[in-house]
């Protein structure tokens, strides 16, 4: 088991009902973590519409994670 910090933004923050949480997981990468959380919280966006960031940097899927990492799932962006 590893402990991760997950931050949520925009549509994911609303669907999770929280901006940040610490959780314990067996997931070895951000992709399987998202699928685990999606099943729990009913996130509508499929993983292929998201990008992953680990410790403040974009990471290509499946984006391996280690104990203590901060994980952010990036919904489709819409700045401007």
């Amino acid at each position: 088991m590893k402990t991760l910090t997950v931050k949520y933004f925009a549509i994911l923050r609303e669907q999770r009902g929280d901006a940040e949480e610490q959780l314990r997981t067996e997931s070895v990468d951000a992709q399987s973590l998202y699928e685990e959380l999606q099943a729990q919280h009913g996130f509508t966006l499929p993983v292929d519409r998201l990008r992953a960031a680990v410790n403040g940097e974009f990471r290509p899927w499946p984006a391996p994670v280690n104990d203590g990492d901060e994980v952010v799932f990036i919904p489709p962006v819409a700045g401007g």
Binding site: F9, A10, R49, P75, P76, V77, A78, G79, G80
Partner: peptide, 22 residues
């Protein structure tokens, strides 16, 4: 607009709202 993690939610006059591109 294409790359930076910024999101926008439109609030419509009709009362609904939606996260753009999501």
């Amino acid at each position: 607009k294409a790359r930076v993690p910024i999101w926008k939610k439109e609030h419509y006059v009709a009362g609904e709202s939606t996260w753009i591109n999501c």
